[in-house]
Design a protein around this nucleic acid. Sequence first.
DNA 1: TTACATACCTCGAAAGTCGAGGTATGTAGG
DNA 2: CCTACATACCTCGACTTTCGAGGTATGTAA
Lengths: 114, 114
Amino acid sequence: MDETVQDWERRWRKSVLPFAALAALGQGPKHGYGLAVALRDLLGAAAPEGTLYPLLNSFERDGLTVAEWLIQESGPARKAYRLTQKGSDVLQEATRRWSAFNNILGGHANVSLD
Amino acid sequence: MDETVQDWERRWRKSVLPFAALAALGQGPKHGYGLAVALRDLLGAAAPEGTLYPLLNSFERDGLTVAEWLIQESGPARKAYRLTQKGSDVLQEATRRWSAFNNILGGHANVSLD
DNA sequence: TTACATACCTCGAAAGTCGAGGTATGTAGG
DNA sequence: CCTACATACCTCGACTTTCGAGGTATGTAA
């Protein structure tokens, strides 16, 4: 809201981006640019491409996604990323943890995150 | 749960730690070691000291906390960190965003984070 | 032909992470 | 007395991550 919090935009984005990207991919395969657009809608702020593409590479490196080149009749080729089973598992676990920590933040501090 | 998710322990900790630390300080002033213990209870995993102390320094740098040395009659001196008004504001905003994104993860995807 | 949207990427400086190690005090056990 | 452990702080350096800037290319609309 006010500029007090502005300094934390960066930190917030850092924290939320990997999970937001995973969640967006969980709704169906997406290519880099399409994911950037989806994240802009989801988070209200653009994810820098210099962050997004290395992040997608790390997803592949960790076996969370597989990528496939889609050649179009018109326009540049697209590299589409699809969640693997492992990617789905991680997303589900991340969702569980996010929710658990949300309860802690909300004051129900007797919830464990183990 | 299983080892599939194990790789994401590090990423999860990275994401959650700044907020968990801020939330823990929101329940009252703490010194570094005490915060480490509180976080171990809260997150079920120890925050490395090599991460925690630089993080606390960044809190001070950003004006989220003020520190005060407490000399004890017995035992080593403690450096206690207390949230500033700005720190409180940031914690409140972070809590709001965490919750909003939790709704998105939970499937209520029409919630905005702006 | 200028501009913008789509679509990919790299580079390099800056920032952050974190295991290892260092310093010091107090307590408990052998 | 020596060892070990808990408390309590910190730095160092290798590593990873971030991200603004820049580069390449296609298609559309003014």
